[in-house]
Amino acid sequence: MIRLIEVHKRFGDNIVLDGVNFEVQRGETVALLGPSGVGKSVLLKHINGLIHPDMGEVYVDGQLVPLLTRRELQTLRTKIGYVFQFGALFDSLSVFENIKLGITDPECSGDDHYCRLRVQECLDLVNLSPFTADKYPADLSGGMKKRVGIARAIAGKPTYLLYDEPTSGLDPVNADIIDALIEKLQGELGVTSVVVSHDVRGSFRVGNRIALLSEGKIRKVGTADELRDSEDQAVRQFLERDFGSAVVE
């Protein structure tokens, strides 16, 4: 379970998170919506300890993340797969080496054949051919990079998956493929996921619950229907672009 209590974060004079309360139950997928630059990625990075809060508490599996030692944090991070907005693939390493870095099985350290099989398994889960393993990130398209990023994130058999804008910069067809992939992984791996996005349709498709982050706070959390029926002006304005008059009348 992931739980953020009254989390505050500022960078210089810019207040990004201003008392965020956020909770994700085991096994569910929560889509975190919000306009660009509102602090969605910052919130996500608090969960795996890449950013520490100025004030407030962040719990993952009952552990208070900001107070973990370096080793404890490393252990926790092996349970949390993180899919970065632009893939963040190591460009000097091949796809195989990228995914291998995500594998935490002790067998992988000395057994190259075992590693190859595990990498193939991960590539298969994200619908990529085994031949992709020998390519370098520079040889891949945007959609393939995202999928390799997901493959690397699931390589360690994580309990949690955090997706940072998984469909941004992709054409609608590729965005649909990624959304379908998130749904598939949710079903096959049973992971607890947080999907940060500003794509309303995609979020409504993959999320069991949707949260809207606005002006440093979680403005609304609920199911897709609850958000559609919300009277909150900020929620309605945000949904307006994708659902048009159906929401705003």
């Binding site: 890449l50 370096r70 970065f84 632009f86 963040a88 460009d91 870095l101």
Partner: peptide, 17 residues
Amino acid sequence: TMRVTEQIDALESLGRS
């Protein structure tokens, strides 16, 4: 470049130092 393309964050998030 690794910092701005989040590769260092990616390494950390994989539990590697």
